[in-house]
Design a protein around this nucleic acid. Structure first.
Lengths: 212, 212
DNA sequence: TCGTCTGTACCGACTGGTTGGTACATTAAT
DNA sequence: ATTAATGTACCAACCAGTCGGTACAGACGA
């Protein structure tokens, strides 16, 4: 598994980026299941085949690795889940929200209800205990909500949604509900929980839509 | 802080129940903040003033302590949060659901957004990692949902709620949303998040109510 | 074109402290 | 005098992090 000295499985490229990324990839995978505290550095090192000395060449501490993982996760989330739904500025904003809900549902199905949401997991584990992580995670969810608030606000401006709708409150509720649904799905290991929750979220949204 | 050998702050009663409960109380408090993995036995022992030998007289392992905590937590939750809302079989079921939502909101306010939901926390940390805890936690949420399903079902039977309402789906969604809202409140440390989410949940419920 | 020098990339043994758990002596109540 | 309850010393495994050292590529002077 690990690249022994002479055999260049990794072609001995001395590529600084490859090692870093291998560590981050392994740690992301392990921490998604076992959490931050539940994942030891040795676990990460074993999984990635990177030596301890080398690890500390790239990362100052386990904490810094955590931040690096989070940064990577945020970039992926924005590029692969959030933005694709809201790409078209002319599209129906409510349909775009539906798109997001469906994407999250399908992601859980693809993972067979294992792993949950990495942001939610870290938020749950660290919010009360590590201010640095708390702040970064709050930022992630904040940009997520911003995206939704803008969409709902657009819909309202176009008269697709009733005037008594408070876009920011809707965004807060949707994000929270999605996180809760992911958690309950991971707990029950039953994708139908997620399906029911998404369906109810759509129904909730429909209660704001202007039908006439 | 800890009761040193001779000073009977705890009046040296040699009460088997007292020691057990002191351990459970201390562990409940610590684990709510730091999680199961993040709380060491020594932390619990220090906090409760119980010696290690004594601890292992009452508990087979840390895992068994976890189960004991969970049992205690479940009993408290049923008696102090869930049942009081649904006590009156004649009452308006929808009002009873509102009562529950308000109770959860006030609990978060009282805790200053710290600690989250102990069941949600454990579910997040352990669902993918410890089948024993996963099963027990799934049970807790199952009885919680049952209570809500029954209430919504009753409301439907009385014609207070539309026929297209699926009580079990509503219950799933409410519980998930509540858990998500608690998590987001713990993350943002902002009680208004919880307030907005509860308000939206009520609005969601209203979309099912028969207004005519 | 050879040798040396320098900086990056990497290794695995080791450290001090913590982990969950055990062994066993001692105390207090019956 | 038993026995239930408790304290203390201890253990091996594990933890994050450090250390001294190595391998090697490219730069540079001779």
């Amino acid at each position: 598994m690990s690249t022994t000295h002479t055999t260049p499985t990794t072609p001995r490229t001395r590529d600084s980026r490859a090692t870093r990324e291998a560590v981050i990839a392994a740690a992301t995978k392990l921490m998604r299941l076992h959490g931050y505290h539940g994942t030891s550095l040795d676990d990460v090192l074993r999984e990635s085949g990177v030596g301890k000395g080398n690890f500390y060449y790239y990362f100052k501490s386990k904490e810094e690795l955590g931040y690096a993982i989070l940064d990577q996760l945020v970039a992926d989330f924005l590029a692969r889940t959030l933005e694709p739904c809201f790409a078209d500025p002319e599209g129906n904003p409510i349909a775009q929200v539906h798109c997001l809900l469906d994407r999250v549902l399908e992601a859980q199905r693809g993972r067979h209800c294992v792993g949950g949401c990495p942001f939610g997991n870290l938020a749950c584990e660290l919010s009360d205990v590590h201010e640095g992580f708390r702040g970064r995670l709050a930022g992630v969810f904040s940009t997520w909500r911003e995206r939704l608030t803008r969409a709902v606000g657009d819909a309202q401006a176009r008269g697709l949604v009733t005037a008594d709708c408070a876009p920011a409150a809707v965004a807060h509720f949707l994000v929270a509900s999605l996180e809760g649904a992911i958690l309950m799905t991971k707990l029950t290991k039953d994708i139908s929980v997620m399906e029911q929750c998404v369906a109810e979220m759509k129904r909730y949204l429909a209660s704001y839509e202007v039908t006439a």
